[in-house]
Design a protein around this nucleic acid. Structure first.
Length: 469
DNA sequence: TGGGTTTCT
DNA sequence: AGAAACC
């Protein structure tokens, strides 16, 4: 179809290697000694997946009748997410329940404070992606990054017809018709991989979502939301400045949060353009050299941070918030309740926690919904073992006094107090000795709960698959 | 304004 | 241990 572009394809293909000498296709470029380095792609192919209104999707799978009604997922007094039927009627994420009901009186609410089902589906998603390519990094429960550079290179090496390249889905800032496909064969292949993965996620898990395909994590994430429900978008290098410019406020840049945005504003920097044009030295004075450089790079769409395999979680926690808690009895009961579910989860995980942490939020008129305080302590081995071996009630009864001691280190219980949140957390999770080298097998955190298999599954070591530098 | 989770300081 | 970031 596009024979005239063949030459360009090959040039691009060859130029994308630092050293192409190991590759057989058309006469390798001159490289003196036959060093057999692994080819280092000039640029990576990074995917970002973002599930559509994730909690609502999970609830609609659990109860298909909810698909046809406006659905909101409620945590305490807010709608944390809602389905698209609800969105058409003006309901939005993080809207208060009263506002949402006002906008849409027929809104059906499902409580979403218990994250169990969401967490399970979330890990199924990650594991499914990992079964195609192990380099997957989670961001929250509903987003995943994936480095598919290696997959792309393999496909590219097998590709003979360069004229076959096309993009799957949208291409950022390229109106449907002018798909000048194969200038970037890697990104084109990445878009097809993204399409296949989205299809797999849909057919195997019943979930829909968006994908972004780009040359780094920042850009993949930014581009993935371009076309919103259930679509995908590829960003070509020549459109990087477009997408960064469109952002406007620095706050929209992933990595620039509330506090950083305020500090930038104090320097007179509000838009991404402002930040791009700001002399590096000005930023260094405010943030120090590493952060300054990072901020400037982000504004330019430059991000060399690797996709790091997330593996099994580094901590497990359970929390609850409330209007007021002011007696030690209530604290003890709530803590016990939280511990029960946490210990249960920890047991299913199979690893043994070495550290316990209690976090509280005190009510204060200033600083109302910020500032948490925490204290932590080591978990005596015999308690840790009870958690693992399944003596859950025992474990809880022994952890409770530990928790209360931590509580007393933060709260003067002889004076009145007013808490609005309690959180219990296990960290420093220790894999039990048995080094199961289940070759390449993607092991489920959850299958363990239902099968009597007591061996530890090691998902933490994806470091075999070294990323490119 | 929830219930998580990770990383940096 | 807290701040800040992400969802």
């Amino acid at each position: 179809m596009e024979n005239s572009e063949d030459e360009e394809d090959e040039n691009e293909w060859r130029n994308s290697f630092v050293d192409s000498s190991t590759h057989s296709p058309p006469a390798a470029a001159a490289s003196g000694p036959s060093i057999s380095k692994t080819p280092v792609p000039a640029h990576r192919v990074i995917l970002h997946f973002d599930l559509d209104c994730f909690y609502a999707q999970v609830e609609m799978i659990r109860n298909p009748a909810l698909r046809e009604v406006p659905l909101g997922i409620q945590q305490k007094y807010i709608i944390v997410t809602c389905n698209y039927v609800a969105r058409e009627r003006g309901v939005n994420k993080l809207m208060s329940v009263t506002d949402a009901k006002e906008k849409c009186p027929e809104l059906v609410l499902v409580k979403g404070e218990d994250l169990t089902h969401y967490r399970e589906m979330s890990y199924k998603m990650t594991e499914l992606l990992m079964s195609y390519c192990p380099l997957v990094e989670r961001l929250g429960f509903d987003e995943n990054f994936m480095d598919v550079t290696e997959m792309v290179e393999q496909r590219l090496a097998q590709t003979v017809k360069f004229e076959d390249f096309s993009y799957k889905g949208h291409v950022y800032n390229h109106p449907s018709a002018d798909v000048k496909a194969s200038k970037y064969p890697r990104l084109a292949l990445g878009s097809h991989i993204a399409g296949e993965l989205r299809e797999a996620v849909h057919s195997k898990l019943g979930l829909t979502g968006c994908a972004g395909i780009a040359t780094n994590k920042l850009l993949a994430k930014l581009v993935s939301g371009t076309f919103k429900p259930n679509q995908q978008t590829t960003l070509l290098p020549e459109n990087i400045s477009d997408i960064m410019g469109c952002l406007g406020s620095v706050r929209k840049v992933p990595g620039v949060g509330h506090q950083t945005a305020k500090r930038l504003q104090a320097l007179g920097l509000v838009s991404v353009k402002d930040l791009q044009l700001c002399p590096l030295n000005d930023l260094v004075k405010e943030f120090g050299s590493p952060t300054a450089q990072r901020l400037k790079n982000l504004a330019l769409g430059v991000d060399d941070s690797p996709v790091t395999c997330t593996g099994a979680p580094q901590s497990l926690s359970d929390e609850d918030s409330f209007k007021k808690m002011s007696s030690t009895k209530e604290v003890s009961e709530k803590t016990q309740q939280l511990l029960s579910s946490l210990v249960e989860r920890m047991h299913k995980d199979g690893r043994q926690p070495q550290t316990f942490r209690l976090t509280i939020r005190k009510y204060t008129t200033t600083n109302k919904w910020f500032s948490r305080e925490s204290r932590q302590c080591p978990i005596p081995n015999h308690i840790g073992q009870k958690i693992c071996s399944g003596s859950s009630d025992d474990a809880v009864m022994q952890l409770l006094p530990l928790a209360m001691k931590l509580f007393y280190r933060m709260v003067d219980y002889s004076a009145p107090f007013h808490l609005t949140l309690i959180n219990v957390c296990f960290s420093n999770l220790q894999t039990r000795a048995a080094a199961v080298t289940g070759k390449g097998s993607i092991t489920s955190f959850f299958s363990r709960g239902t099968s009597p298999k007591k061996s530890q599954t090691v998902l933490s070591q994806c470091q075999h698959h070294k990323s490119y530098t």
